[in-house]
Simulated scan of single mutants.
Amino acid sequence: MGLPQLNSCCFFFDLKTGTIICGVINSILSFIMLVALIVTAAIFGSLQSNEEIKNDPDAEAYMTGLYVISIILVLMYLVKFLSDLVFVYGVLRENAGVIKAYLIVWLVFFLLSTFLFFLHIADFHAATIVTEIIYTGLNLYALLLANSFYKQLNCREEL
């Protein structure tokens, strides 16, 4: 048993069009997150030079940890943004190999981001939690669309 198969996107787009739309939306959201995380990393980097933080080893270790995590997240979202762009290209060219590779990258990214989210859920505000739930829901729907389109491509190739 696998993922459920969709026949259309939002009841009126075909799978290819819906997958392209979701891929473009994901790439735009990934780019926005990338820019936001770059700004966050720059803020944490500049806060490390604060004299009050330099005098307190605990605060300095905490800020260094936040800075390193933000740099890791920047790199993760850079990879996600680039893979979103390649995915849209793969859907336009109907390349099943690119779509399969994207599904694997998406799964790894999803597991890492979900792990980080639940690891730090106590530090988040309610708005951040709701935003993460909506973002996860949209990504799961995009995954279902991409998987359905991938299966449709494989069925076409078998004929």
Rank of each mutant, 00 (worst) to 15 (best):
E157W: 09
V74E: 01
F149A: 00
V91D: 01
E157A: 14
V74K: 00
L103Y: 01
D14K: 01
V130K: 06
R156L: 15
L111S: 03
W106K: 13
G90N: 10
V35S: 08
A122Q: 10
Q5A: 11
Q48D: 11
C155S: 15
K151H: 08
N147Y: 07
I53M: 00
F12M: 06
M76P: 03
C155A: 15
R156P: 10
I133N: 04
F87Y: 12
F31G: 05
G137D: 04
L66V: 15
L73S: 10
I28R: 03
F81C: 04
Y67V: 10
L78V: 05
Y89I: 14
N7M: 13
Y141G: 04
T64V: 15
L144D: 06
S70Q: 01
L78E: 04
A127V: 15
A127M: 08
A41T: 11
F44D: 10
L103M: 05
S113T: 14
V108R: 00
L66I: 14
G65S: 10
V108Q: 03
F115M: 04
G18I: 06
L75P: 06
E157S: 12
N154V: 05
V68A: 12
S83A: 12
L75E: 09
V74M: 02
C9S: 09
Y141N: 04
L29D: 03
R156M: 15
M33P: 10
L143F: 14
F117M: 07
C10K: 15
Q152R: 06
L82M: 07
I20H: 03
L6A: 00
V86E: 12
F87P: 07
F11P: 05
V88S: 00
